Amino acid sequence: MRKFYVIGIGAGDPDQLTLQAVKAIRSVDAFLILEKGEEKADLTGLRRAMLEEHARPGHRLVEGRDPDRDRTPEAYAPTVDGWRSARSEIFERFLAEELDEDGTGAFLVWGDPSLYDSTLAILEEVAGRGRVAFEYEVVPGISSVSTLLARHRTNLNRVGRPVQITTGRLLAEGWPEDVDDVVVMLDARHAFTRYLDQDLHIYWGAYVGTPDEILVQGPLAEVAGRIEELRTEARARKGWIMDTYLLRRPLG
């Protein structure tokens, strides 16, 4: 039976690779690498550097082109579904054509595969078609959320209080009910600026765990403008940005 590993590799710092991830990498015959274009070449470069250090001699890298995706669609869910299906065809070809029946393959996932990543859903789509037989194992990784909070030296939760992880798109529609601590990911529209009149503290970070890391924290009304400027400048300079933040309001 073909074996496929989905390996979480952390938020970008090579030292965030877990021992479990290193052991999995050393057991793999072939790795699928999806190129995302010149703008994001440094992301692929970090993956390659990890493999060069930890993969066993004779491993193979199989390159594919990540399908393009509309980032501002009118119909969000159908657009994401179409992109996932296009990706699933690449994964299926890799499994069928690049692995022997008892071969091992892997895909390296930023952060943790369970948090805002599509790889597991894509593999389920491939398995559901039934064209190629395989089993897969998930290796957890250190998420960008964990790295962000470690860098800011703060907790995700407070005693007896829930936490919600959401997207900028949903935060723009309103603050979640009965929650005082909200982690926001995938916020391309600066949804936090809708809450400048509220008593909130923000812990923000971009490219956390990489040499380009940027961190800002403070009362939202005081630092929101600086975050917007830093985010805009960084995206223009690098061509892409990965950021997340925690919004916290006082208790009582």
Score class of each variant (00 low, 15 high):
4 F>L: 13
4 F>W: 13
6 V>E: 01
8 G>K: 04
9 I>Q: 11
14 P>N: 07
15 D>V: 05
21 A>V: 05
24 A>N: 09
24 A>G: 11
26 R>T: 14
27 S>R: 09
33 I>K: 06
33 I>Q: 01
34 L>F: 03
38 E>D: 11
39 E>D: 08
42 D>Q: 15
44 T>E: 12
47 R>V: 15
48 R>A: 13
49 A>G: 06
54 H>N: 14
56 R>C: 09
67 P>D: 13
68 D>M: 04
69 R>G: 12
71 R>L: 15
72 T>K: 13
76 Y>F: 11
80 V>I: 10
83 W>H: 13
85 S>W: 04
91 F>Q: 08
93 R>V: 13
100 D>Q: 09
103 G>P: 06
107 F>W: 15
107 F>P: 00
109 V>Y: 07
110 W>K: 07
115 L>F: 14
123 L>G: 03
125 E>L: 10
126 V>F: 02
128 G>Y: 11
129 R>Q: 11
132 V>C: 03
139 V>K: 09
146 S>K: 12
147 T>V: 11
152 H>E: 07
155 N>L: 14
156 L>I: 05
161 R>H: 11
163 V>P: 10
165 I>C: 15
170 L>E: 09
170 L>H: 14
173 E>A: 12
182 V>H: 03
193 T>K: 02
193 T>N: 05
195 Y>D: 10
196 L>C: 13
206 A>E: 02
208 V>W: 07
210 T>A: 02
211 P>D: 02
212 D>A: 13
213 E>C: 05
213 E>M: 07
216 V>W: 01
216 V>C: 01
218 G>N: 01
221 A>L: 08
222 E>D: 14
234 A>E: 08
236 A>C: 03
237 R>E: 00
240 W>Q: 03
241 I>K: 07
241 I>D: 03
242 M>G: 03
251 L>Y: 12
